[in-house]
Simulated assay, not measured.
Amino acid sequence: MKEILTFDQLPGAVTKMQEKLDNIEQLLINRQEQSPEQEELMPITKAAEFLDLAVPTVYSKVCRKEIPVNKRGKRLYFYRSELTEWIKSGRKKTAEEIREEAVQHLASSSKKAKAF
């Protein structure tokens, strides 16, 4: 249950709220400062290190167009954020997630069948 503030408690409550807003603002500022690092362009050696792969493996993935890459002349460059997204896209669903999707699909299929 929410606490009802009295008039005398308002200054303290406003101070607490201001402190919380300051904390949120600082978190957002810190996050923005980290964002440019995420957009860092990396040469193939750093990308291989980031992915924990051998450089020849990264080259072969580039040749098979399996990995996001930027090419300038003969040089290959990788954005950290694109590599992170690439890694996330390979996530395998858990058995529970697959089961839940199946239940939702069956439920929506039965609703469609009833509509006809």
Rank of each mutant, 00 (worst) to 15 (best):
T45D: 06
V103H: 00
I87W: 01
R99E: 06
T45P: 00
L106E: 02
K61G: 12
T94F: 00
E96Y: 03
I98K: 09
L76A: 01
A102E: 10
S35T: 06
D52Y: 01
C63Q: 13
V69N: 03
E33Y: 07
A107Y: 04
I98P: 03
H105T: 04
E40Q: 13
S60H: 10
G73Y: 00
I29H: 05
L28F: 14
A47G: 10
A102I: 00
I29A: 11
Q32P: 00
P56A: 08
I29D: 09
A102C: 01
L53N: 07
I98W: 01
E96G: 00
E85M: 11
W86L: 06
V55G: 10
K92A: 12
S89Y: 01
R64G: 03
K61A: 12
P56H: 09
S60A: 10
N70E: 09
R75S: 15
V55D: 10
D52E: 09
A48G: 14
A48I: 02
P43C: 10
Y79V: 07
T45Y: 08
M42P: 07
R72C: 03
V103C: 00
R75W: 08
E100P: 02
L51T: 12
F50M: 05
P56Y: 10
M42G: 08
Q34N: 06
P36H: 10
A47H: 12
V103G: 00
E39W: 08
K46P: 02
V69Y: 09
E85Q: 15
E101G: 08
E37M: 05
L106W: 03
F50L: 05
F78H: 02
I87D: 01
E100K: 08
K46V: 02
K65D: 14
K71R: 13
E39L: 11
M42S: 11
E40Y: 05
L41N: 14
I98V: 13
P43T: 11
L83R: 05
S81R: 01
W86I: 05
S60C: 01
K46G: 01
K74L: 02
Q32K: 13
K46Q: 13
V103R: 00
E97A: 07
T84K: 11
Q38V: 02
R72M: 02
P43D: 14
E49A: 15
P43M: 02
R99A: 10
L53S: 11
Q34M: 05
T94G: 10
Q34K: 07
V55N: 11
Y59H: 14
E97Q: 12
A95D: 04
A54Q: 05
P43N: 15
T94S: 15
E33R: 03
E39A: 12
L28T: 14
L76Q: 05
R91T: 13
W86N: 15
E39N: 15
E37S: 13
A47V: 07
G90F: 12
E96N: 01
L83P: 11
R72W: 04
